[in-house]
């Protein structure tokens, strides 16, 4: 099962709409609430990153019986130093992003903690791709 969502950079009023919709789908599929929480927390932080740091993006969610795979792809400035970006506390977020309750440099570490695997690739001046996998098999 595949779902796709568009994300607008800078639009905080809509940030979380994709994560909210995915949460509803996973609930309907009777996925374990603890797993749902991990998936949507990671997705939400990723969605907020596109809104906060990029121009626009696309979220693809693919669900099968074994795992939930999410790809968050954006057109944006990209990340010059991925190891640095993954460090707790590192943030280039604007004052506007901080006013929204983010920008403490915890998003990527939160995503890594909640997903079974996180792959991050980025091209400066082009954009960023984050891939999150959560296993469903017991």
């Amino acid at each position: 099962m595949e779902f796709n969502y568009e994300v607008e950079g800078g639009n905080f009023a809509k940030a979380g709409n994709a994560a909210s919709s995915v949460k509803k789908v996973l609930k309907q599929l009777n996925v374990d609430p603890k797993v749902i929480k991990r998936v949507v927390v990671a997705l939400y932080e990723g969605e907020v990153n596109v809104v906060a740091h990029a121009y626009k993006g696309n979220i693809m969610v693919d669900i099968d019986t074994a795992r939930i795979f999410i790809r968050i792809q954006d057109e944006g400035p990209g990340i010059p130093d991925i190891d640095l970006a993954m460090t707790v506390g590192y943030s280039t977020a604007s004052a506007m992003v901080r006013e929204m309750g983010f920008g403490a440099g915890m998003g990527l570490p939160n995503m890594k903690r909640n997903a079974d695997s996180l792959k991050l690739s980025s091209k400066v001046g082009e954009g960023t791709i984050v891939e999150l996998t959560t296993n469903l098999s017991k």
């Binding site: 940030a15 929480k37 927390v41 929204m100 309750g101 983010f102 403490a104 915890m106 998003g107």
Partner: peptide, 24 residues
């Protein structure tokens, strides 16, 4: 007032107390 902090918790039946009032 930091939502990333809230997103690290795994307590149940929690009350969130905040001075931030927005959709996020």
């Amino acid at each position: 007032d930091l939502m990333s902090d809230v997103l690290t918790l795994d307590s149940e039946h929690l009350a969130l107390i905040t001075g931030l009032a927005n959709m996020q």
